[in-house]
Design a protein around this nucleic acid. Structure first.
Lengths: 103, 103
DNA sequence: ATCATATGACGGATTTTTCCGACATGTCAA
DNA sequence: TTGACATGTCGGAAAAATCCGTCATATGAT
């Protein structure tokens, strides 16, 4: 399900691509200048992100502008939420558990 | 920095391990029954999670109980936060942008 | 039509991940 | 001590990811 989203985010370069897109849509050639990578390598990273629907591209003249699809990252947030409850419960009640757990 | 956390979460089996640990600490032998994997494969997944400090293990008799280190997942949350702002801004103001972006 | 530019996709090499069986260590019980 | 059990680690095989150069396609300019 969200397997693709998580594994896409498992790569440093792809996370940086997403961060760059925070400032607005960017073309492939604009992005490639930010990385010590060939254009084809970057193009494949974009394909992974596209496949996970984390980005989409819009034709713009003879280039393609990539932009974020922010909703996808909500999946991460949703997966995270049971853990957030976990650590909230942890901090509120059971401080004495800690001393025994940390050696 | 949090590279290890993200790439640890890039694997389905490791995410499931974390989910199982939500119910409480578990031994390796208890965990291995939940997966179609050899014990050594699972042990290596646990090593990756341990290395990312997403879990810790406590000796308990002749077994080791693995438990979550919830704080680590906050790093994901923090990385996500600029994107949350992004999509919040998106939804609030610029609905007319949408029509041009989605083809 | 022709040429330059921007990009995606392919083929193949290298590296990394994932997995397993086997071995080593450490704990508990008899 | 000896034996059973739980676990970590190692060596190596198989699979997947990453990267590059090259080719194919599409758009825009001349």
């Amino acid at each position: 399900m969200s397997q693709e989203v998580f594994s896409a985010l498992g790569n440093q370069t792809r996370r940086e691509i997403l961060s760059h897109l925070l400032t607005g849509p960017l073309s492939v050639s604009a992005l490639v200048e930010e990385f010590p990578l060939s254009r084809s390598a970057l193009s494949e990273h974009l394909a992974v992100l596209r496949n996970a629907d984390l980005v989409r591209d819009v034709p713009h003249g003879q280039q393609r502008l990539y932009h974020l699809v922010p909703d996808r990252l909500r999946e991460i947030d949703e997966w995270l939420s049971p853990f957030e409850s976990y650590w909230r419960d942890r901090l509120s009640g059971l401080r004495d558990m800690r001393e025994t757990e940390e050696q």
